[in-house]
Each structure stands twice: as C-alpha cells, then as structure tokens.
Design a protein around this nucleic acid. Structure first.
Lengths: 134, 134
DNA sequence: ATAAAGGTTCCAGCAACGGGAGACTCAAGG
DNA sequence: CCTTGAGTCTCCCGTTGCTGGAACCTTTAT
C-alpha cells in the first residue's frame, strides 16, 4: 500500500506520515522498486494508533513510548496506566490555568464599556504595575 | 536602564526582551555609547504590558495590536473589547476540547486494571479501528 | 591588574509539521 | 506509443516564541 492510501486509512496528511517515517516513529514495511514507501496492515495500524494518541494530547516521545508498549506483547498495563494518569494530571493543571485566564479576561471585558471612549479597563489591567494582583 | 534591569522590572528573561527589540515589538529608548540597549520608564511599561498580554494568551501580533491601541491615546475601547471577547471565545473552545480529552482519558484509565497483565483497555482504545467513536 | 558579571552579535535548534520546487513513476485514455 | 494527470520522491525553507551557546566587548569591583 502506498503512502497516500496509508495516510487516508490512518486519517493523517501524507506529509505527516512521511515525517513519522523520517523520525523513525512509524516506518513503512519497506520500499518498492521505484522507491515508494510501502505500508502493510501492521504499519497502518501503528499510524492509526499514533494518530489517536496524538489527538489525545501525547507528545511524539510519549507516543513513541506508548507505541513500544503497544507493540510489545509482554508490556505491563501498569506502565500504560501510569502514563495516562500523568497526562490527566497535566491536563487538569492546564485546564485550571486556562480557566483562570478566561475568568480574568471575562472580568476585564465586562468592565469595559465598549463604546468609543478612550478609557479602557482592559488596557489598564494589562498595564497594571503589579503582576501579582488578580 | 540596561536590559537586565528592564527585564527584571518587567518580569521577563533578558533573552526575551532582546527578542522583542529584534522583532520591533518593544524598542529600547536608545543605545549607550558602548552599544548597550537603554530602556526608559516608558519602554519598561510597554515590556510589562506585553508580559501581561502574553500571559493572557495573546499572540505576538495580537500583542502588537493591543500595544498600538495602548500607546494611542485616541484608541477606541470597543476595539480592545472586541479583541478580548474573541480571545475568550477561543479559550472556551480550547477548554471544551481539553475537557473532552480529559474525560476520555479518565474513562480509559479507569477501565485499566493497572496490574501486571498485558491486557490494557487504554492501548486497545488507542488502537481502535474506527476513529469516529467517542 | 584582574576577574566576575553583564552586555553585544550571530547561529542553531526545539515541536511538529506545512508549503513548494524539481524530478520521477504509474495508470488511464486516445 | 504518447500524453496527461495524479501521486510520490527528496530537499529545503518557514512557522511560533523564544532559548541556549560561542566568541567577543564593557563595566564594576576588588
């Protein structure tokens, strides 16, 4: 199977699949005589796996680790669970930060009249001297 | 005031301040005879302003726009409010995505025994054939 | 006089690809 | 057989917002 079909089956851009091959994340099964990358079912499964794990917010190195766990029949599910839980904690932190940010922005935007006057609490908030205040 | 002091006052790394000067986002007031960047109070205020807006999730181009609004006495607060509200909507979208992601991960992690067995619902979930399923 | 601390420039690189050039290959149609 | 068009190849540059390092210069303190 050529790269275009593999990419379509995995739901990834061709460029991305080629990139994954370049960095040795998902290698094609081999090459055709004319030099085309050749993907078999196993390689496509890995691509699909990576596609999903990427969508779950895992970095390439993390995907690499998960992929090796996936490919290794003797893997310990505890390892996988540990990775997933660490990622959940990360997401929680990020969510809290983003929520704070959003509430802060809502507060200043609400205080802003939004008319044509040059006074603007948003800008004043940004320009505030202290960077600690909420 | 030299770059180090300006950076400290703005709460930014020196490298970042230099970078902002390079891209013309916040220029120093001038240069000393020996070529050192010289920051006055106005420049430091701009640095602090940018530092805050960056922390609020605005991109550099957006900061540039806000900065020009900030620097322009005749600015319209409506422009600023519009920018802030667009950013809030963005944050909401991003928050929803991250929340979905997190819940999905929690679900699969919960289903995983986490013991030494090779069975792992997390990996199976990642490896799932359909990419449409919740 | 000398050493440490801080400044300068430029160059390289990070994540994770995307865009596009220029050459090649393959499948179909006339 | 030839042509056309789509797909593929490699290669290199660009993105975002910095960060680190090298090699050198200036200032400050002792």
């Amino acid at each position: 199977m050529k790269i275009g079909d593999a990419a379509r089956e995995a739901g990834l851009p061709v460029k991305t699949v080629r990139y994954y091959a370049d960095i040795g994340l998902v290698d094609p099964q081999g090459r055709s005589e004319s030099g085309y990358r050749d993907y078999d079912a196993a390689a496509v499964a890995k691509l699909r796996f990576v596609s999903r794990t990427r969508r779950f917010g895992f970095s390439i190195p993390e995907c690499r680790e998960l992929l090796s766990l996936y490919a290794d029949d003797g893997r310990e599910s505890a390892d996988v669970k540990r990775l997933a839980e660490a990622k959940i904690a990360e997401l929680d932190t990020r969510l809290a930060e983003l929520t704070d940010l959003r509430n802060e922005l809502v507060r200043v935007a609400t205080a802003c009249a939004g008319d044509g006057r040059p006074d603007c609490p948003i800008l004043e908030r940004f320009a505030a001297l202290d960077s600690s205040g909420g």
